[in-house]
Write a protein that binds this DNA or RNA. Structure first.
Lengths: 138, 138
DNA sequence: CAATAAATGCACTTCTATTGCATGGCTACT
DNA sequence: AGTAGCCATGCAATAGAAGTGCATTTATTG
């Protein structure tokens, strides 16, 4: 039993070979991935399987969706202990317009927002676009 | 010369009949509209024309895109004097998960965000999801 | 081992965004 | 006014991603 297997089981996800590979792939960078990215990384696997794997991961709190405004949904690992809880877990995402990658800035929580009366917040998404550390240092 | 015509010309957009209608339509609510919404409002117009009208408006600073996470792009009028300037013009958007409408909260600017060294911000997008004033008051 | 449930793979559909090309109308210039 | 050329419009087709239905394989449980 390797650690990935143990982890997936702790999340109530049956640790199939494919799921372990996808999870491992996600851990290898903090860059959010599209379904297409993952598809390219695992050419032997079917798109639908990967699609449903990500949906399952999302339901079980293993990954969260990132909508960075490019029009295609990306996925990134949740932090340890994350419940995607408003006020606590929501971090911001940075989209680099040069390398087109989207990075989770998990240390940077979304600041408190005051809404007008009558509005109830349940979730929020903050994406900052610009030039990332790597691309600006050139 | 009506005011819409004058306005469009001031933005260097030739005021065609179609463009004036679309602009007028946009002024009638502060709810962001998808291309599909506009298409339904003007059944006689071609989808492509509306699409390109919005693109033109966007380029000329008349509307801005709103990405509320529903997967379809929406458009909303820029405020008067808006340059979509970071630090000044960026307001937040509220997406109601009940009525599924997205509202520009133009009075609510996005708070100052601190980024790690090396990151340069050029634009940002903040969407709060939840229940809007109208839907929560029921 | 049989029965059942879950995961996978394939094909297809849907929805939106986007582009190419032909046509029509307006503008500007002579 | 006549004409060339640009810009706007409309139609048709494509692209790209998300999502669904169904058959098949794999795994689990008794």
């Amino acid at each position: 039993m390797n650690t990935i297997e143990v982890f997936l089981e702790s999340k109530k996800v049956r640790p199939t070979a494919m799921r372990m590979l996808v999870y491992k792939y996600m851990t290898q960078s903090n860059v959010a991935k599209t379904l297409g990215d993952i598809e390219n990384a695992f050419t032997k696997a079917d798109r639908t399987t990967l699609y449903r794997t990500l949906k399952t991961f999302e339901e079980k709190g293993i990954v969260h969706q990132v909508d960075d405004g490019t029009g295609t949904i990306k996925y990134a690992l949740c932090e340890a202990g994350c419940n995607c809880d408003i006020d606590r877990d929501l971090h911001l995402h940075f989209h680099c317009s040069n390398c087109r990658e989207t990075i989770c800035l998990t240390e940077h929580k979304i600041p408190q927002i005051n809404l007008p009366d009558g509005y109830v917040a349940e979730d929020m998404n903050l994406v900052v676009k610009g030039i990332c550390e790597h691309c600006s240092g050139q």
